[in-house]
Amino acid sequence: MAKGFTLWFTGLSASGKSTLAERVRDILLERGMNVEVLDGDVVRQNLSKGLGFSKEDRDINIRRIGFVCNLLTRNDVVAIGAAISPYKAIRDENRRLIGRFVVVYCKCDLDTLKERDPKGLYEKALQGEIKNFTGVSDPYEPPENAEVVVDTAKEDIEASVQKIIATLEQMSYIPATDGRGYSEEEEESIKQRLRDLGYI
């Protein structure tokens, strides 16, 4: 039975893709899975070094990440891609290529992103110092078929992580927390509910 799949984080710069990818990676590693993260920023320093931010270059970059994710996935590794990946067509192309493909859309409003702006990029983009900046001077096409949508402006990190993990469990891409289905704490809660109704 196939164990690998690709978890693909998409969203604007500073929307929380890398943070969530790392948190999810840690949880999956703890659960004994083989995991690799392909972070857009890191990939651009090696695999895609020299590529710019034109639509053509962005497409090449996302295709390359998708290509590697596919290799990992078919070898039973959980591949986590975290890249802005603004264009629907290329994301869908990767979905078709990989098959076991779960999209997490990191939604976040522009005001919050400008406030966060950890690399000062939004400020520079708004002042015209950076061209083709997604969300400011370049388009972002939100996914319509994301398996998970996290609103990082409103949710805290743990809530978003839980949503992602729950989805992966529901899709049976990862086993539930406990072989019997419930943790000890959950079993206690269930016992209490059953007692409350006289069922045990």
């Binding site: 994301a146 398996e147 998970v148 949508v149 609103d151 409103k154 809530a159 839980q162 949503k163 729950a166 989805t167 469990e169 529901q170 959950e186 809660s189 269930i190 509910r193 059953l194």
Partner: peptide, 18 residues
């Protein structure tokens, strides 16, 4: 429904949770 514990684990697909 019953014996559902957390809402986050009660909803498929999770996009309906919010």
């Amino acid at each position: 429904g019953f014996v559902a514990l957390q809402l986050a684990n009660s909803v498929w697909p999770a996009e309906h949770l919010p």
